[in-house]
């Protein structure tokens, strides 16, 4: 209350902020006695400024929990440590692993341009294309639209996903794990099946079953162990892992049947998904319609069906210019 009267001098935000950080730090350190706690409560209740300053530093500190992996140049961080949460129930599980990593966009391998090895084999799909590769060990790789994948000529258990998106159904061999390198990261299957997607500056890995490890090749940071439901987004220096329902992750695999499944996706994102599969490009420039939400299952190669649906369901205007279509209000 004290500082709110218009005539009162402003309280010193820096001093209060530092006190708030000191309290937070003391609580973080632990060993808080009853006396400490009383002092802390007293400080908190002294003014609303103390309270809001404390909420603010605590909220920021909790936000930093979302850092689950960070590649640092610091030597101190190179020492591998055991992952904090080791979900032992998955360790015992020998079930199939499905990992999703995804590669979108044209940029592709920003961080990684591995020297071409002799006898590497390159597989590619065009926009809207799909391709299935069966390896000699029985493993299957399905390439999605606009994708480039190279298979190591000398080591048939190693591939580079240079661009695009692929689903891996891998014959598991504990002594010779299958490795995918994409966007400067290495994904090693610790189960049997996985799926990968990559952007110009990031990589997505989602695990549906089993286990896989994800590590940043350049940074020598510790590998992250992914378990079912984990959805990782990795950039050059940082990996964030969140949990999603496995059913949602399975929707991301619907392209294998030639369909796109949207659940509460924005029109702008749905349009860019369609643009990955089709020469005809959808443009959503109007922010008023870009945020509209869509649910539905659509054939990936049928832009017209999608346009019809959004026109009638969302009451938007579609201007078809042949090679592109503009969606507006």
């Amino acid at each position: 209350m004290s500082a709110t009267e218009s005539g009162a001098p402003l309280a010193d935000a820096r001093a209060i902020g530092e006190q708030a950080a000191d309290w937070l730090e003391r609580r973080e350190r632990g060993g808080f006695s009853e006396q400490d706690n009383a002092a802390f409560e007293a400080w908190l209740s002294e003014s609303t400024a103390h309270l809001t300053a404390y909420w603010r530093v605590r909220a920021a500190w909790e936000r930093a929990n979302r850092l689950s992996a960070f590649g640092s140049q610091s030597n101190a961080l190179r020492k591998p440590v055991t992952p904090q949460k080791s979900p032992s129930q998955f360790f015992r599980r020998v079930a199939a692993a499905v990992v999703a990593v995804a590669a979108l966009g044209a940029g592709a391998a920003l961080y990684l341009s591995p020297p071409a090895q002799p006898a590497d084999m390159t597989y590619a799909t065009t926009v809207g294309g799909k391709k299935v590769i069966v390896l000699t060990d029985g493993s299957r790789i399905e390439l999605n639209t606009d994708t480039i994948l190279r298979l190591d000529g000398a080591d048939r258990r190693k591939v580079w996903l240079d661009k695009g998106e692929a689903y891996f159904d891998i014959h598991h061999n504990a002594r010779h794990p299958f490795v995918v390198i994409a966007n400067g990261h290495r994904v090693t299957d610790l189960g049997t099946k996985f799926f990968i997607r990559e952007d110009a500056d990031r990589l997505e890995v989602a695990l549906i079953e089993g286990r896989a490890s994800l590590e940043n090749v350049g940074r020598k940071s510790k590998p992250q162990i992914l378990t079912p439901g984990h959805f990782a987004v990795a950039t050059a220096s940082l990996t964030s892992i969140s949990a999603k329902p496995v059913a949602t992750l399975a929707n991301d695999l619907s392209w294998r049947n030639g369909t796109l499944i949207f659940r509460g996706m924005t029109l702008a994102d749905a349009a860019s998904e369609f643009n990955r599969y089709n020469r005809k490009k959808l443009l959503v420039n109007d922010p008023k319609v870009a945020g509209l939400k869509i649910d539905g299952t659509f054939p990936a190669n049928n832009v017209e069906a999608f346009l019809d649906a959004v026109q009638s369901a969302l009451k938007v205007h579609v201007e078809d210019r042949g090679s592109e279509a503009v969606i507006s209000r």
């Binding site: 530092e18 950080a21 000191d22 937070l24 730090e25 973080e28 350190r29 909220a59 920021a60 936000r63």
Partner: peptide, 25 residues
């Protein structure tokens, strides 16, 4: 790991907490 005392760890973390609030928000 850092070759410092625990009180110095406290100082580093407290400073970091203060600074993170400013940059994050």
């Amino acid at each position: 790991r850092m070759g410092i005392g625990e009180d110095t760890v406290s100082e580093h973390l407290s400073k970091a907490m203060y600074a993170l609030a400013d940059t994050l928000y």
